[in-house]
């Protein structure tokens, strides 16, 4: 569920589609899909959709660059909060 929601958000907001070339492991920064504005949009979306906050340490260490890591981090934060 989280994954499909994030896929939909990323594709609609950043105007691309996951396929054989852009997979859930692809670094979306390196591919030129996320820029500074997209990164901020992404963080705001995760915060508002899942009601979670990131600590400064998490922001600096868990840099969200690919779908797989994003989903793992969101699931972890939700589990901790529960």
């Amino acid at each position: 569920m989280i994954k499909s929601t994030m896929v939909e958000f990323l594709q609609d907001t950043l105007l691309f589609e996951f396929d054989d070339n852009i997979t859930e492991k692809t670094d979306l920064f390196k591919e030129g899909i996320i820029d500074s504005y997209g990164y901020i949009q992404l963080l705001n979306y995760i915060k508002s959709t899942y009601g979670i906050e990131f600590t400064k340490e998490e922001i600096l260490s868990n840099v969200i660059t690919n779908l797989s890591d994003m989903v793992k981090l969101i699931e972890l934060k939700i589990t901790i909060s529960q």
């Binding site: 920064f29 390196k30 500074s36 504005y37 990164y39 901020i40 963080l43 705001n44 990131f54 400064k56 922001i59 600096l60 840099v63 969200i64 660059t65």
Partner: peptide
């Protein structure tokens, strides 16, 4: 978007660009 964003989020962004790619 620089003004309306928490500065710690910007830290995360710039962390990405702290080394030579």
């Amino acid at each position: 978007h620089y003004n309306e964003t928490s500065k710690s989020d910007l830290l995360g962004l710039y962390q990405q660009f702290s080394t030579d790619r």
